[in-house]
Nucleic acid binder design. Structure first.
Length: 426
RNA sequence: GGAGAGGUGGCCGAGUGGUCGAAGGCGCUCGCCUGCUAAGCGAGUGUACGUUUAACCGCGUACCGAGGGUUCGAAUCCCUCCCUCUCCGCCA
């Protein structure tokens, strides 16, 4: 959420920058108008309430019953007027909130301006794509042939976009989870958390998934439980409505959770393999930092994600999103993509964003810069570290052998009981 | 899920219709005093929104778990919900 005062004071600058992420000027004007209406109503209501208080206090001093009675009678009208206007104010207040909540973040000034994903910028590429003396196969063929991915039974149990990992396939994913968590905890300074994967609606408003993107979420119909689309949601909300005391920042958290997404919008896209499912696992890094550090913290976050690629020895590249491809909440965003030689594409395995104070304002996450000082909004950031299915894809396709077996990357072997390869026999 | 108790400021805790943003205590901040420390004395000490301002101050309104209602007026009365604790039930 943007600061309404910023929009009020610099409407033209805000419009100009929001235009680069596709927001119409008329939307901003509608918001500003709604703000004006609401503030005028506040003045009106508060003046009447002040009058009510003063006159009520006078009533108790009136001892003559007739006089008192007529005073009460005339006050009754005022009371009704107040409650009528309060209802109107509540509506106008809601209209304003809704508009403000649906306005995306301002892009960071350094973000390249562009229309859509075609104008994203590849920042760097690390590692060389592997060469094969045979033609590399996609993971859905490898996985099925090895008996470690079962698509048919996934569909039987839960429908399309579900699959079963089996045997060493399941173990490979589990090894990755444990190894990545250990890496971020031991070498990158993150504190592990195990959060709920069902959360209250407020959490999703805090991170910016609601009110606008509810159609990509699963929820319980009886209670206020929403299934998280990413660990970012519960972990960011950990400090909702809290003031982080001096000396506590930066706070780094890493969490492993399953993630649930309806993927309604992308029906028909990426249907083959395990690239895009309704349920997938992810290790997620979340940072809470002082505003002046957030730019540097984003670069460090990206590097933490890249480190996973490096240690697995899988080529990767870093892509900066242009204004047109920024998410609703991000001020600046980099994707880390791994090369998958079997399906011959770059797979997004991590998305690292600086939200600046956009989420913090929604979720009221603040910090105290100095003892006794006024609380200020923190900056929040997060990035995958990494998304499991796509890393599994990249490993299977990168480490595949001519005989259809797959060699296990060195760093994972201790997490797989010393196992060195996956083949049909195992 | 059932029965009971309870939710008031940073913390403890009083308050059952107006003089209550809320006694008292603790904590904290500032000042005084004290040759260190401790004690003592005095003053101050919530948040949000609106208004005004360069900014502060000031002024107004709201906030006593949340929402709704009664009333001229609600922390206080009524209704609904949430949460915590104790006991029982169930359960990985």
């Amino acid at each position: 959420m943007l600061d309404i005062k910023l929009i009020r004071d610099n409407p033209d600058r805000v419009k100009e920058r929001l235009a680069t992420v596709g927001v119409l000027e008329t939307d901003v004007d509608a918001l500003l108008n709604s703000d004006r209406v609401r503030r005028a109503r506040i003045r009106e209501v508060e003046a009447l309430r002040a009058e009510r208080t003063t006159r009520s206090k006078e009533i108790r001093k009136i001892s003559d019953p007739t006089e008192r009675d007529s005073a009460v009678r005339s006050m009754r009208a005022l009371g009704e007027r107040v409650s009528q206007l309060e209802k109107q104010l509540a509506q106008e207040e809601e209209d304003f909130q809704q508009r403000l909540l649906e306005l995306p973040n301002l892009p960071h000034p350094d973000v390249p301006v562009g229309k859509d994903e075609d104008e994203n910028v590849v920042i760097r590429t690390e590692g060389k794509p592997p060469t094969f003396v045979f033609s590399p196969r996609p993971h859905w063929e490898l996985g099925e042939a090895l008996g470690i991915i079962d698509f048919a039974r996934g569909v039987k149990i839960s429908g399309s976009r579900f699959y079963i990992l089996k045997g060493l396939g399941a173990r490979l994913q589990r090894a990755l989870i444990n190894w990545m968590l250990d890496l971020h905890v031991n070498e990158h300074g993150y504190t592990e958390v195990y959060p709920p994967v069902m959360v209250k609606q407020d959490c999703l408003v805090g991170t910016g998934n609601l009110p606008k993107f509810g159609d990509n979420l699963y929820r319980d119909i009886e209670e206020d439980f929403w299934f998280i689309p990413t660990a970012e949601v519960p972990v960011t909300n950990l400090y909702r409505e809290e003031v982080i005391e001096p000396g506590q920042l930066p706070v780094y958290h890493v969490a492993y959770t399953p993630c649930f997404r309806r993927e309604k919008m992308s029906a028909g896209r990426d249907v083959r393999g395990i690239k895009r499912g309704h349920q997938f696992d992810k290790v997620e890094m979340v940072k809470f930092v002082e505003p002046s550090h957030s730019d540097a913290e984003l670069l460090a976050l990206v590097d933490n994600a890249e480190e996973v690629c490096r240690k697995l020895n899988i080529p990767h590249r870093v892509v900066q999103m242009c204004t047109g491809d920024l998410s609703f909440v991000a001020a600046c965003k980099y994707d880390v993509e791994m090369w998958a030689p079997g399906c011959a594409e770059w797979l997004e395995v991590s998305s690292c964003s600086n939200f600046r104070d956009f989420q913090a304002r929604r979720a009221k996450i603040r910090y105290r810069p100095e003892p006794g000082a006024k609380p200020e909004l923190v900056h929040t950031l997060n990035g995958s570290g990494l998304a499991l299915p796509r890393v599994v894809i990249a490993i299977l396709e990168t480490y595949q052998q001519g005989d259809g077996s797959v060699v296990i990357p060195d760093v994972l072997r201790p997490y797989m009981g010393g196992q060195e390869k996956i083949d049909r026999a195992s």
